[in-house]
Design a protein around this nucleic acid. Structure first.
Lengths: 283, 283
DNA sequence: CGACAGCTTGAGTCATTTCAATCGTTGTGG
DNA sequence: CCACAACGATTGAAATGACTCAAGCTGTCG
């Protein structure tokens, strides 16, 4: 059992001077590149982000609501369990995990958040965070104050639609991994998914540098770390991939896809739809 | 591949009884008690449903959009994989499951939908159903045409808020069961949850008639049917409950709650918040 | 270089599954 | 009304996928 949680000293490297807009007790150590305002208009991620489909002048207004542009070092928290919810975050670069430690001390990784993805939508309802959000590598996020966004959405139906779609997509994507699948299937699906998300972020779908440790992968897939290692070794032996530490090359994406196929929601019906979710894009 | 799983023929429990009233291959067989219009204003479920918090005249308008009031016999489909999404449904009485059969023939129960809960929100994004919705017992649902609801939400912020909250709550509640927990923990949590939902629907939290079979429970909890049986027997032997077929009495809810506690998101932080989600209400 | 953290590999164990047989209910037809 | 079929639930025994424990390996960093 992995009691050994990486309690990375968030304080050690934090620049205390950097824009501390939160004097609260549980102060979230956001290192903000302060004055840099994100420009949604020129952001390559816009089609995948909340302001997708906004008209120019709405977009400008939206941009003005994006208050901060935080940079996080590996291991730094974006927010913590118990923090009040007041903002959504969009990953601009890097990768984060949301995770929670249960009373028995087991860490559960709820999700990985790749470039272009929204963090925090599960906190809208309880109005409080029930997970920690931790950067896995140097990452930057846009800060979308929810009250303002929500208010703005009342005037701009297009934004409303995007918000609801983002939520629905999230539910949709969760249904796959929550299912009953073997370790092989889950890991194969994970790799294919990371490849797809990697490509969305402008990289390769088959050549990637994982942001997360074996332990994180295991905690996400409900496996033991050793099991992840072993399956990777087996996949490698059968020529499906090459794995060296966090450097992974998918040599036979179709083979992996075949193993993972049962987790693809789209394969459940006769639809040959464009794989919109990215969760299972082949190659 | 050693990963032989329970290849439970989808036909096995598909709808042996209900195959009656559906000659069509894909048509949604809604048995409508036609003319009966639901009255949200007098519905005891309103606080838990979408129109929660609407002002009187908005409520009347909302009522008018609720087009149908369908009744389903056990085993009947509300919708099927591949159906176009055009409506959300609110469970008025009874209980339904949403489930999908993967390419290997394994059935995955995605969710159970109890009285007062919304069905279909995961289809908003893909605009298509990727699951079957099947009544477990005689059930009735309100029919909420999404286009109209969505349009109406643009004018009525309160409704918009409710929609987003419902989605966020759904995400929130999914995070528990998707975690890595033992069979005992998952089953205990399941029973506590059913009790809580049963009470919300006006019944008892400890005395209940399950709507679902052991097989359905197993497919939901990622267990084998036999395992569910065995754990129930063990719980019974240790005085936690009394189980006879689908009739379950929780004799020691606190004991069950203690086992299930690790799955309670609220217990992850120091919060002694009113257990709003119902997922883990004690007794 | 040494310490450390993350990763890998092996061996034994355990929780859960699979296979198989039985039991109790419920519904059906004679 | 009873026999019988059918189905869901239960129980036992054996098999196994994944875990735990433990040791060794590899790369990184001070």
């Amino acid at each position: 059992m992995p009691w050994s949680r990486n309690i990375k000293p968030a304080g050690g490297n934090a620049d205390p001077a950097a824009a501390d807009s939160q004097p609260s007790v549980t102060a979230t150590p956001i290192r903000s590149s302060s004055s840099i305002k994100p420009r949604c208009g020129t952001c390559i991620l816009r089609p995948h982000c909340l302001p997708a489909g906004l008209a120019p002048e709405q977009l400008r207004k939206f941009e003005n609501m994006v208050q901060q542009f935080a940079t996080l070092k590996p291991g730094e928290h974006l927010f913590r369990v118990g923090d009040n919810f007041h903002s959504l975050y969009a990953v601009r670069s890097g990768c984060l995990k949301t995770c929670a430690v249960d009373p028995n001390g087991r860490e559960h990784v709820l999700n990985f958040h790749f470039v272009g993805e929204i963090i925090g939508i599960d906190a809208i309802f309880p109005e409080q965070h029930f997970a920690d959000a931790i950067a896995l590598v140097e990452s930057s996020v846009c800060h979308l104050p929810y009250r303002a966004i929500s208010q703005f959405a009342r005037e701009v139906p297009e934004l409303q639609v995007q918000l609801v779609r983002a939520l629905s997509r999230h539910v949709f994507s969760m249904t796959s991994i929550s299912g009953d699948f073997s370790a092989d299937e889950r890991l194969a699906a994970f790799l294919v998914m990371v490849g797809a998300r990697n490509r969305l972020a402008g990289g390769s779908a088959t050549e990637m540098q994982l942001a997360m440790s074996r332990q994180d992968i295991a905690n996400y897939l409900r496996l033991a770390t050793e099991t992840v290692s072993r399956i990777l070794a087996r996949f490698q032996k059968s020529g499906l991939l090459r794995a060296n530490r966090r450097q992974i090359t998918l040599l036979n994406p179709d083979g992996l896809y075949a193993i993972a196929e049962c987790m693809n929601p789209y394969s459940r019906c006769g639809i040959n739809r464009r794989r919109a979710d990215g969760g299972t894009t082949r190659n």
